[in-house]
């Protein structure tokens, strides 16, 4: 076998350190705590929905970008994944609108 310095990290692009992974984990925990807090604090009224949406979307992006390495990988993988995500979200939105919004 040819010499390697190890897997994908041998290519010349950046790669998070363990320290950065732990930082991300801490941020994820904080966001989760905020979500739960928002849930319990009844002050937000109907705004709780977009706030929760934004918070969980941020967790999603953090895991995807750092843990799943999308930030450092060639963009085609992000396109593939985000493509599926967009179609899935649009479908959920469409079904919701049809059942609870405009019809059904």
């Amino acid at each position: 076998m040819a010499e390697h310095t190890g897997g994908a990290a041998s290519a010349a692009h950046a790669h998070p350190t363990i320290r950065q992974y732990i930082v991300v984990a801490v941020i994820l925990t904080i966001i989760t705590a905020v979500e739960v807090a928002v849930f319990y604090i009844h002050w937000f009224g109907v705004f709780v929905y977009p706030i929760l949406f934004v918070l969980s979307a941020s967790k999603f992006v953090l895991v995807g970008a750092y843990y799943m390495h999308l930030k450092y990988d060639p963009p085609v993988m992000t396109w593939l994944f985000v493509g599926g995500l967009v179609i899935a979200t649009a479908t959920i939105g469409g079904l919701w609108a049809l059942f609870n919004g405009f019809g059904g």
Partner: peptide, 17 residues
Amino acid sequence: FGVWSHHMFATGLGPIA
């Protein structure tokens, strides 16, 4: 992915849908 309910025009989806 955006046209599926044209198979359901006779099911009473409502005018907006």
